[in-house]
Design a protein around this nucleic acid. Sequence first.
RNA 1: GGCCCGUUGGAGAAGCGGCUUAACUCAUAUCCCUUUCAAGGAUACAUCCAUGGGUUCGAAUCCCGUACGGGUCACCA
Length: 551
Amino acid sequence: MISNEELADLLFPEVTETLEDLEKRFPPRNLPEGAEVTRFAPSPTGFLHTGSLFTEMIAYYVAKQSHGVFFFRLEDTDTKRTIPGAAKDLIDQLREFNLVHEEGYFPEGDVGAYGPYQQSKRADIYKVGIKHLLKIGRAYPDFCSSEDLEKIRKAQEESKVVPGYYGIYARDRNLTNDERAARIKAGEPWVIRFKSLSDHDRKMVFHDEIRGDLEIQENDIDVVIYKSDGLPTYHFAHVMDDHFMHTTLVSRGEEWIPSTPTHLELFSAFGWKAPKYAHLPVIMKLDHGNKRKLSKRKDPEAAVSFFLKEGYPVEGVKIYLMSIANSNFEEWCIANKKYTLDGFTFSFGKMSLDGALFDLDKLSYFSKEAIAGMDIDHFFAEVEDYAKKYNPELLARIDEDPSYFKKILNIERDRPNPRKDYAKFSDIVPATRFFFDDEYAKIKAAGLPFDEKFDKAFIKEYLDDIALNMAYGPDEATWWNSVKEISAKHGFATVNREYKANPEAFKGNMAAASSLIRVALTGSKDSPSMYEIISIIGKDRVAKRLQSALD
RNA sequence: GGCCCGUUGGAGAAGCGGCUUAACUCAUAUCCCUUUCAAGGAUACAUCCAUGGGUUCGAAUCCCGUACGGGUCACCA
């Protein structure tokens, strides 16, 4: 009769380390009371999802505000789905968001004492745990092929019982060790399953930091914990890693709630204390009246790269996500008169339970606030950085004359209520075209939208007068007064009250007059402060545009 | 289908048995300011908290059923 120990040795002859050895290798962290150790543990299976960024950000802030540790672990146990380069992209994007970990996996190499931080490199560690479970009789080899499992599932469907590998359906659960040994020696392929002692008819309660006490049916399915490719499944890797990396709080998507009982049973089989759990709501999207998960395929905003490419300021995106995470955040911002994450304390208790709909309008609002809150040097640096990475057209414009461009960006910013017309950096390109003579020529060629009630000869006469005789400085009031004076000569009312009282007596009011100048200058009826525009473009070019507008 | 989670205006939400005539923010609309636009200021926008019962002197708030939405039942995470 073969014992559990002998069976374990037969399965893993190369494993000589014990759990105690691992405990020594990964001693407890020396952290102050109340410090949380959190992590972000994505799979390198694609781009960084907006929901992942949300999860990541929360884990990051929970660790930071408790003076704990935030680390990054690469969950690459699914070798089939792993995409080369995805891990690097993930981290590059986290860098852009200033949410990089100081401990964990990096493409250039791990940082930290609890690694490796890449699960595919932890196979020897997992084997120690598997062997331990084998020895204490809480795990066993299973020889079912995928066809066998399919057959079991079919039978269960027909008899309308809960599908899964459990109870009488767990075919190889009650094999004798002698049988197991014989089949292993015969070279049959196997996986290792966890022997669950739970009862499906019983309920267990666990505490969730967001949802409170959750009552869930126990999980009596014997889950696979060690795959035939020599790597563990998520369930097992999570338990081993978060134990030896001393994670105190696991924040993850709510899709993990149903498997938490399994994880908890795994922890207790080892005799370990489980971490706290916070199951986060998923960000949703409204689709034809129905809520659904933000989808990689259908929604561009599901990819974090979308925000980066469009040029949403990262602060704006983060502020927006925080406003979804904690409902009191916005009020905090208003009370503090600034839109920033600095100094705000995130709390799980203030999280809503169901998934928020992603709202681009609100993101735009926060992004405008974020941009308006930057000083001009910071703003310019951000725009330049964005242009270099994502927008060659914009970059070319900046490079033509950086100081000119900076002046353009600074229009109506130097004031208590700065202009808020840019929600994202890509908005800058169309909004600033007219400042460049080549672009202005194109706008003009397409036709300047002068008010049709004025005939061309009149407009020309008026604009010539303005070009030659208006004051180009030294301040806005002087300039505007001169414009009014000239306009009056051409029959415009300088006092709107007078115009309203007797519209027939005038060519129009100052709105109409200034509109002629604005259209000639910018090609549009809408623009920011004309005085600032004139100051930036300069007297000569302004005069030229005004005088040739009707050509 | 079983199990789990959820349901307050177009959106994010506050609310934790009487203080609610349901905060606050975005969006939308109107008005004001104004040389246009953006911003800013003001006002409007849920007769009611998915729904049906119940508990209570009193319910958005507690209990039960129903509906709807989401999640989960892999050698994926």
